[in-house]
């Protein structure tokens, strides 16, 4: 597993045209993420973190350059194949959880299996299993509105996990949570990385969080990659090092 490249981007650009002005949300980013690595994408608001993550997720297409995920050049996939890629290869969680309000947790979690045309019986057992993994089995018939933010994000993690993707993409997963529940979520993400061997790319603007959990940190500013370094203890401030032990 280790040693192979899970995600690679080359001179990746995503530009938006707003009337006369051109917004370079992502501007020539080249990076590589080895399989099984936990990478944090850091940068201030508007630096292009989400834009890069959406390009890796196959939700968006680059203006130029390429994203290659597990040897697939996403720019060359059809809309149909891109949907399949999102279904089977990557799992996503968001800052705002993005559960469907009209569905119970179990239904939310098994929704990707419906798109994958998995049979009902198997769907039920897989959903129960995934919810069990995030400690929400007892709440499976509740609707998202009946749950706390942390619980909703756990359910979202269960959903991201359901098709056993190799890559987890998380866009500020703790952004809407207090630090205690944030830690819970981060521990879960870490366990996915360590126990299931998933490659994790997490967007955050909290440097402390990245330093605590990520193996590598990529810094962005104005759509450009400004720093890319491993999260070695030497790079971490002594005060935070204790928390990691």
């Amino acid at each position: 597993m280790r040693g192979t490249v899970a995600i690679r981007s080359e001179n990746l650009c995503r530009h938006y045209r707003m009337g006369e002005t051109l917004i370079r949300a992502v501007d020539g980013v080249s990076l590589q993420v080895p399989a099984g690595e936990f990478v944090a994408l850091l940068g201030s608001s508007g630096s292009g973190k989400s834009s890069i993550l959406n390009l890796i997720a196959g939700l968006d297409r680059p203006t130029s350059g390429s994203v290659i995920v597990q040897d697939r050049d996403l720019a060359k996939l059809s809309r149909e194949d891109l949907a399949k890629y999102r279904l089977y290869v990557v799992g996503m969680v968001f800052q705002s959880f993005n559960l469907i309000a009209s569905m119970t947790l179990a239904e939310n979690v098994e929704l990707p299996l419906r798109f994958a045309e998995v049979e009902r019986g198997k769907r039920d057992s897989l959903a129960a299993e995934a919810l069990e993994r995030v400690g929400l089995k007892a709440r499976m018939h509740h609707r998202p509105s009946e749950l706390s933010g942390g619980e909703q994000q756990r359910a979202a993690l269960a959903r991201a996990l359901i098709n056993q993707p190799k890559i987890l993409l998380a866009d500020e997963p703790t952004g809407n949570l207090d630090s205690r529940t944030g830690t819970e979520i981060m521990n879960l993400v870490q366990s996915f990385n360590q126990d299931l061997g998933m490659t994790v790319v997490m967007v955050t603007h909290e440097r402390a969080l990245a330093e605590r959990y990520a193996q590598r940190m990529i810094f962005l500013a104005d759509g450009k990659l400004v720093d890319d370094r491993p999260n070695t203890p030497s790079a971490v401030e002594p005060s935070l090092q204790g928390g990691r032990a």
């Binding site: 997720a57 279904l87 968001f94």
Partner: peptide
């Protein structure tokens, strides 16, 4: 809108 976006993000195709 959002629900459609979510479904697409978790793997729904245009056809779905």
């Amino acid at each position: 809108r959002r629900e459609i976006g979510i479904m697409k993000a978790i793997g729904a195709s245009d056809g779905d």
